[in-house]
Design a protein around this nucleic acid. Sequence first.
DNA 1: GAATAAAGCGGACCGCGGTCCGCTTAGATA
DNA 2: TATCTAAGCGGACCGCGGTCCGCTTTATTC
Lengths: 233, 233
Amino acid sequence: MQGEELLRVTGDDGERTDAARNRRLLLDAAAEIVALHGPDKLTTEGVARRAGVGKGTVFRRFGSRAGLLHALADEAGRSFQQAFMAGPPPLGPGAAPLDRLIAFGEASIARMHFDGQILRAAEQRGGPDPEHPTQQLIRLHLSLLLRQLGVQDPELASYQLAAFLNAGLLLHLQEHRGMSTARLCESWRTLVAALAAQGPAPDRTSDRSLDHVLDRASDSALDRPSDAGRECT
Amino acid sequence: MQGEELLRVTGDDGERTDAARNRRLLLDAAAEIVALHGPDKLTTEGVARRAGVGKGTVFRRFGSRAGLLHALADEAGRSFQQAFMAGPPPLGPGAAPLDRLIAFGEASIARMHFDGQILRAAEQRGGPDPEHPTQQLIRLHLSLLLRQLGVQDPELASYQLAAFLNAGLLLHLQEHRGMSTARLCESWRTLVAALAAQGPAPDRTSDRSLDHVLDRASDSALDRPSDAGRECT
DNA sequence: GAATAAAGCGGACCGCGGTCCGCTTAGATA
DNA sequence: TATCTAAGCGGACCGCGGTCCGCTTTATTC
């Protein structure tokens, strides 16, 4: 009659110590393989063998190959999350919403140089999963900023913007279409500025807000080729 | 010494008659399986068995499972291509570029009710392949219209728009987020109108073009819940 | 109709993602 | 320390996507 809550005191998250140990072993082994041979060469059996555990453990801990990649990508992107949620402006709080939006996109694009490979591999299989916590966090952030800009239906607009910041798409544009980071950032600014321009004050003084937006967009256009979002990763 | 061009006279596309026959058999078998059990249940072996051919033939003819799905989706979407390239306005030529863009998005969204399942299945594996001819055609169409609107970098903007018209995303929003077709269309109009608003005349008379755009957008807002793009499929 | 050369064919085969179930071990209780 | 229970473990197993290579068919030429 010890009740049904007899454990749950061992690990930090109700995870048994051996389970936690194996999670770390697998994560490290996976990171090693990815660093050595790229994400495509990561097989569930290989990572299990390298970690010294059975294949079933991989699926117990991460659910799927994609889950493992996602966990890997999340570890790499944790500092990025920190940066845009609690870091210094313009990425973090304190700057104007439009500036934060622009900075977020530029940082996301710049981020591809570092862990784009892993991000792309993680979002394989059925396109990027919009239900993944990380994706949800990104969209929440975007929709908050969009709401502050007075954009209509910020939630749906956040999906539109997030669809473009997709790692698979950005890497494709960079690698297979030879588009520069600067060009992608420029297009991002244009897109965001366009959305912002029609949000606030659609009745009068609309040209003032429009000019404001256009000025802001052209201010930062075509410079800063790839040093945007240095604080990521 | 008959030269190296001795055949190439049989099928309509240099395809041997048995090859063409098997292609049709496979396509029909695949369509049948999809109609009966959904795209997820389509296996290369199953479709081969149903078509009465070997498994290798599937890959010879379509390259991969995704290729087969793509061919299926293309067949279903051929009339849609016709409609926006040579059909009646506003989808086809003759209408104003902005109207055509709006109509295109609305038709794409409406199309999901019919062959969204197949489209999503086809674009599985690594997100939608931007190099597929159908995707290229869609982006070409979009970029042409965007250029007529004076949008900066129409090519890249077409990627942004196409990213949103992704079947996987649209179906997700409809099925898992309960978003209505009307809401998706509304958001599409807003997005396109925003891009169009800053395209032409960024120096003077910008408020005229802006008003023009906003009027046009609000004209068709919130009505036409799901009867848009009837001519598709 | 015989010969011929290449395109086509198909099923055995492989690798990997994912599942399952009997065994092991951690950790709590006494 | 003995015991007990559930979480954890791992490798055999399965299904499917994709490849390969020797055999068959097609269509042309003489």
